[in-house]
């Protein structure tokens, strides 16, 4: 089976998922991102790497944060950025996903940044571009259903590397709604590929996918036991619609058992960092004292996200 993410030379053609990418590619993206962190500190925050290129942010699902960071990243690379909120336009009129793509191709797009509520949608687009021999157009997955959010996974890895330097000696815990989380899937794929020896997931059974241990993680249901001696705590967002019903009885009970408080965090190593992909539900998955505390690196994550997205886009454009 052809790996749709790599071209014939093993270079990144599209970024669709971190699952299936070799360690060398992940490391190359993180290395490329390093110098981009300094661009933001310059007086002129621009590089000419994507000059003359058109980047289309095609969001079939609403998002402000991710779309904005992609937009900033593309603009810092001097690309022309076009934002399409497809969730409120053409698909509502019945246009198919591939018709939308064809139309945007006809507008001379060079790169699509795609968010879609259905797992695998960016693969369909990449496959369509391949079948129609439009190999110069690249696809970046900005989140598809429950499947993947690769740039979030990469910025998380960048953050971990920034604070912890190495991956091979870490214990990392991912806490919360793994079942519905594309972020968690990308984090697990990246952490296991980069050689983290112990990746834990901590959640009630209702919020874990079947056979989750087959992804190479250790399953914990007890927060204290799961956080014992970890170096990195990665919290997940709990969607409002999942808080009351057959998955969980209430946000209060979730917070009581799995919410990250200073007391629970004390189980982790003293120098452990706390991460969250945002937007946070304070008092549901994380206590404000922790979110605003000295161990939280939540805002640096956002800053690094721009550098990582610049790295991904520049590498794609250069392949």
């Amino acid at each position: 089976m052809r790996n749709p993410q790599l071209n014939g030379h093993g270079e990144l053609q599209h970024l669709l998922s971190l699952d299936g990418l070799p360690k060398s590619v992940l490391t190359a993206i993180l290395d490329t991102a390093e110098p981009f962190t300094e661009v933001a500190e310059r007086e002129v925050k621009k590089l000419p790497l994507l000059r003359g290129k058109s980047v289309f942010n095609v969001f079939f699902e609403n998002s402000t944060r991710t779309r904005t960071t992609f937009e900033i990243a593309a603009k810092r690379l001097s690309a022309d950025v076009i934002n399409l909120n497809v969730a409120t336009s053409s698909t509502k009129k019945g246009e198919t996903l591939l018709d939308t793509v064809d139309n945007l191709c006809a507008m001379q797009a060079d790169m699509f940044v795609v968010r879609h509520e259905s797992s695998g949608a960016p693969y369909l687009i990449a496959d369509h571009l391949h079948n129609t021999a439009r190999h110069h157009i690249h696809v970046v997955n900005a989140g598809d259903g429950r499947h993947a959010h690769p740039t979030q996974g990469l910025l998380d890895m960048f953050t971990i590397r920034h604070y912890k330097k190495e991956f091979h000696n870490l214990v990392v815990a991912i806490v919360g709604d793994v079942l519905h989380s594309r972020v968690a899937r990308s984090q697990i794929a990246a952490l296991t590929t980069l050689g983290v020896p112990e990746v834990r997931v901590i959640a009630p059974k209702t919020l874990l996918p079947t056979d989750v241990e087959r992804m190479g993680v250790r399953v914990f249901h007890d927060m204290q036991a799961g956080l014992k001696d970890v170096d990195v705590v990665m919290m997940l967002r709990l969607q409002n619609e999942r808080m009351n019903g057959a998955l969980l009885p209430s946000p209060q009970e979730f917070f009581k058992v799995w919410g990250l408080t200073a007391e629970k965090l004390a189980e982790a190593r003293a120098d452990a960092i706390v991460m969250h992909p945002g937007p946070m539900n304070r008092g549901v998955e994380i206590d404000s004292a922790v979110a605003d505390g000295g161990q939280a690196v939540i805002l640096p994550q956002v800053t690094f996200g721009i550098a990582v997205r610049m790295a991904v886009m520049s590498m794609l454009a250069g392949s």
Binding site: G120, R182, T210, D211, R214
Partner: peptide, 15 residues
């Protein structure tokens, strides 16, 4: 199928 592949691909499973 609610198993390894659906878990990895983020597809809703049928047990």
């Amino acid at each position: 199928h609610d198993g390894e592949v659906a878990a990895r691909l983020g597809l809703a499973g049928i047990p």
